[in-house]
Design a binder for these strands. Structure first.
Lengths: 239, 239
DNA sequence: GGCTGTGAAGCATTTCACAGCG
DNA sequence: CGCTGTGAAATGCTTCACAGCC
């Protein structure tokens, strides 16, 4: 359905602009929470950051934090944290703060990270291989269950799964019921790959290709754009 | 000095929150353009996207576009493009639109991409290697001129440059006059690496480590966070 | 007493809509 | 006549500030 925020395109993501009527639309597709007061996408994108900070507190053996402490760990204001969380419920205790274990659980539930998600990776070149072997995926709830590419890598077995030909994206993704796709192919083929993923039933796409991926409204697209990030930082470098 | 926008942390970046007084502060450091009416960081972060779209038009042999065409190629509104560009000058022609060659040149100048920038890469594991071998860097104005790591990779020669020991970041970066650093090391060492880079004179940091990097105000930090992007997309996946 | 949750206020960004130039 | 550039309006997000619960 509709979309969210739109200040910039998010850390990623994009889409059509003034499509229907308003909503600058981009990155986000409609929430699977039609009833909610429509939570800003910006808030949704901050939740993973809160999660990381909470993890860090847990590791340090801390059991509860107040909004002030959490805020300074992340680099935002305490009011923002309280406001963000208030969109979803009342997780704190006056005079106390937030129980970290509890809050972590709530955020996981909100983001639907309290289950595991199958992911399809398209493109098994340098980047794709780095993604597969990246340890950072392990502690998360995502598991790469299908890999696609063309050329010689097809047929190769990685982590127990066979690299399929990109031509089979739609049927394989559909068969496996995969809802998340990662695009790690060159720009020229990115849009086509996205279309195939969508046709296979994917509704969330993370793309590393530096182009604006067009997708239906119900598909969320986020873009990882290190080059763009660098190109915008040079603006601020003082000589 | 100060900072920019702050809606989320940008596609990346972050920093302290209510540091001085207001400005949510984050990602951006003061512009090297103290006189300008202070351009929103969000606008700066969109310029690389405009650049990509313009490139694509050039490749297709198109010489000029109006705001409407450019907008629909990117997925934003025409008004936004006109407003964004108006922060920097008047690059269009009424009744005509924008000359692509000219506009590309102007944006390059604005972002200071009309020169080449030396970059230091810290971390030469899977990710670091993928970054070095990533073709996407070639057509840009960035060149990795120093690589750092620990362990066995030290001393190895890559693309003509030797992998230095991370202990030497500060002196080497300083010696080479490098102003941009890329952090591709595990979370635990990321902050320390950032400190070393800053001590060496770096004022723009692109980090792949999923933690909030603290840096002085004059340093711009942008974060690439694929895991966070995925964790926030699951919110929208409809069953 | 401390700290959350939240109206209301304050800002920032986007969009409208149109005067006016080429 | 088309399309830019831009006041002014609209929208959206963040921060203030405080009532009220633990």
């Amino acid at each position: 359905m509709a979309t969210k925020s739109g200040y910039l395109f998010g850390s990623t993501s994009q889409s059509d602009p003034a499509r229907a009527a308003k909503r600058p639309s981009h990155e986000a597709a409609d929430p699977a929470h039609p009833d909610d007061p429509v939570i800003p996408d910006i808030v949704i994108r901050r939740l993973p950051i809160y999660l990381r900070a909470l993890d860090s507190f847990i590791i340090h053996g801390i059991a509860s934090v107040n909004s002030e402490e959490l805020a300074s760990a992340i680099g935002v204001t305490a009011a923002q944290i309280r406001r963000d969380l208030s969109y979803f419920g009342r997780f704190g205790k006056q005079g106390k703060g937030y129980d970290i274990q509890l809050l972590t659980g709530e955020i996981h539930r909100i983001l639907r990270l309290d289950r595991s998600w199958s992911v399809a990776l398209v493109g098994y070149g340098n980047l794709g291989q780095a993604i597969v072997h990246y340890g950072g995926f392990v502690p998360t709830t995502f598991s790469i269950d299908a890999i696609f590419d063309r050329n010689e890598t097809v047929g190769q077995v990685v982590n127990g799964i066979t690299v399929h030909d990109s031509a089979d994206i739609t049927p394989v993704v559909s068969e496996l019921g995969i809802r998340i796709g990662i695009i790690a192919v060159p720009e020229v083929s990115a849009q086509k790959i996205a279309d195939q993923l969508v046709a296979g039933g994917v509704s969330a796409i993370l793309t590393y290709a530096p182009i604006v991926i067009k997708a239906p409204d119900h598909v969320t697209v986020r873009e990882v754009d290190p080059i763009g990030a660098m190109q915008s930082m040079t603006y601020y470098i003082e000589e």
